[in-house]
Structure formats: C-alpha cells, structure tokens
C-alpha cells in the first residue's frame, strides 16, 4: 500500500489494536477527532470509546495513568498532542516509567508507548516545534525512537508494541505528509536499536535522524561527495557499532540534528566516535544542529533550523582537512 507517515502509523496502530486485546490508545482528541494530525483517524469508530480514549486535558494525567494501566496489565499507547506539552509528564517518565524495572529487579515492567509529534519547519505557534530526543535519551530505561520514513514508522511502532519497556515514540510533523512510500499491508517489525544505512559512501559518514534525513540527502546529492548516510531511527539505545564501522572506513563524521547543539545528542555520538575510532579519523568530528536556545517563533524558524546549505558547507569543511 502507498502510505505517508500518518497513514503508516495509523495502519500500525490498527494492527496493534487488532492483535493485542489489552492495547488501548489514549490522549487528547485522539477519538472522534482522530488526533489533531489525524494519526488515529477511524480507530474510534472501529474499536470504540473504551479502547480509543479521549482523555481530560492533562499530559501528566495521560502518561501517569498509562503507567498505571501498564502496571495493571493493559498495554497503553498514549498520545501527547505536542512534544512541547510533554514536559508536564516528565516526572512520570523519569521517576516512574524509566525506573520500575530496575527498582523492582524486573519483577515489574511498564510496557507502553508514548507517541508525540516533534520538530519544526511547519510554522506552528510557540511550544509546538520542539526536538526533545536528548531529554528522553538521557534517561536509561526509556527507549527513544524517531522514524524518518513511513516504512520505518510502521515497523518501529509494531516493534515498540512488542517490547516490554516504555517507548517514547517521536514523530516529526514535517515528515507526516512529506512523501508516500510503498509499505506492506500486514504487520512487520523494524528492529529497535538498529540504525539504517540510507546510502553507502566512502568519503565521509553523516549520522542523522528525523527531519534532517531528507535535508542531508539533498545536501549530499548537491555536494557530489560520496557520503554514507546513517539514519539512527533509534536514538537510545544507540547503534554504536554501525556508526563506528562506517567512520572507521570513511575517516570523517558529521552529526546533523534539529535539536539544539549544546548538550544535544550529537555530543553523545561524537564522544563515542572519539572513543572508538580516533585513530582512523582524518578530521575533527563535526556537528550541525539548531542554535543553543529553545525553538523560536515561526517567523524566525528558518534562521534556526539547519538547512541543506549549512550541511553542504559542513561537508566541504570536513573534506578540506
């Protein structure tokens, strides 16, 4: 079937609800409205109000009760309407979802998915464009995934539903309807913790994910360099071996992400490259990221998010060493 990312995730959720009788979807406007981005469209009519639950407007409530549902034997798939509103649920994720397994020595677990739209480039109001993957990836015990294609979105969602862990599932709004892809109609999994080599190359390695994947692809095409592009897909746990194997071969690495530069996820990747591939490096590891402050108002967003030219300049710079 041809599907954009919205349709692919919708299809995945449909298959999960069909297959797993304990699975429920909950969140604001996920029922009758089908979600503000229409990701849960049609599921309320198909599964009813008991399984596709319009909750009161409370992010901490949605995530906190999801944890309780999971502890109570259900399998909640929560939606927080925008990542910028999910900080209200941060306590529930840090203090509870992430720790139940370790503090009970695996006698309790929290199998749940928290979905939220992330990143910008679509001219939204304040707080609707955050890229928070580094916040959640810093918390051991949470799985953090972020697909960049409809195929990966569906496969990662189904895989996430089979994990016995809390999964933070980040969906880039800019990519929701950017393009369609031919994907299988039935269930399939995309491995969590495994990066995707988008294209092979020999001159340099670019590690990226989410909204920056199409930006990097275009920049590489324009640069005429042979770049290996790695789409992380899972931010935590990191697929370190795929990154290190590639960088050892190319000798050059750029990390490109939309999240802020300072203490961003690029720092983690760069540190691991320095640790495991320093003797193969022919240039310093570079990062291309948004500026080190919260996402601006939409009138300024193009000055803030990395674009193709910024990536191209980084490619030229790293190749000049």
């Amino acid at each position: 079937m041809m599907a954009n990312m919205v349709a692919a995730i919708n299809n995945a959720l449909d298959l999960i609800l069909q297959d797993d009788k304990n699975a429920v979807i909950l969140g604001e406007d996920v029922g009758k409205d089908g979600g503000v981005f229409r990701v849960t469209d049609g599921l309320y009519d198909k599964y009813g109000a008991d399984r596709v639950i319009d909750t009161p407007l409370s992010e901490a409530g949605i995530v906190g009760t999801s944890i309780g549902m999971a502890l109570g034997g259900m399998h909640p798939i929560a939606e927080v309407q925008f990542a910028g509103f999910m900080y209200l649920a941060f306590d529930q994720l840090v203090n509870h979802a992430a720790r139940y397994r370790s503090r009970t020595r695996s006698t309790r677990s929290v199998p749940m998915i928290v979905r939220t739209p992330v990143s910008g480039g679509v001219r939204t109001l304040e707080h609707h464009s955050d890229s928070p993957e580094e916040y959640y990836s810093h918390i051991g015990g949470l799985i953090v995934v972020e697909p960049s294609t409809p195929y990966d979105a569906k496969g990662l969602m189904i895989k996430a539903s089979h994990m016995n862990d809390p999964v933070v599932f980040l969906e880039p709004t800019k990519l929701y309807r950017l393009f369609k892809q031919d994907i299988p109609e039935g269930p399939y999994e995309v491995e969590i913790g495994k990066a995707n080599i988008v294209q092979k190359g020999d001159d340099l390695t670019i590690i990226t994910w989410g909204t920056m994947v199409p930006v990097v692809k275009n920049a590489v095409t324009n640069s005429k360099r042979s770049a290996e592009i790695i789409d992380l897909r899972t931010i935590n746990p990191l697929d370190e071996s795929t990154i290190i194997e590639s960088v050892k071969r190319t000798g050059r690495a750029i990390i490109v992400h939309e999240a802020e530069l300072t203490y961003g996820p690029g720092a983690e990747v760069a540190a691991r490259i320095a640790d495991k591939a320093i003797f193969e490096l022919e240039a310093p590891v570079m990062r291309v990221a948004s500026a080190s402050f919260p996402y601006p108002f939409p009138g300024y967003e193009n000055y803030y998010i990395p674009n193709e030219l910024k990536v191209q300049k980084a490619i030229e710079k790293i190749m000049s060493y």
Binding site: R123, A291, P298, G299, N302, N307, L309, K310
Partner: peptide, 21 residues
C-alpha cells in the same frame, strides 16, 4: 553561544536560510 552566532554570520547562513518562512 557567541561562537554559534559568529559562525552563522561567517557562513552567511541567515541569507541562505531565506529569511522568515
């Protein structure tokens, strides 16, 4: 932060970014 601002100016990033969306 100053380094980031200077780099954006040096790279001519704001001009190539095409301004407000």
């Amino acid at each position: 932060l100053k380094q980031e601002e200077d780099a954006a100016i040096a790279e001519n990033f704001w001009q190539t970014a095409g301004g407000a969306g």
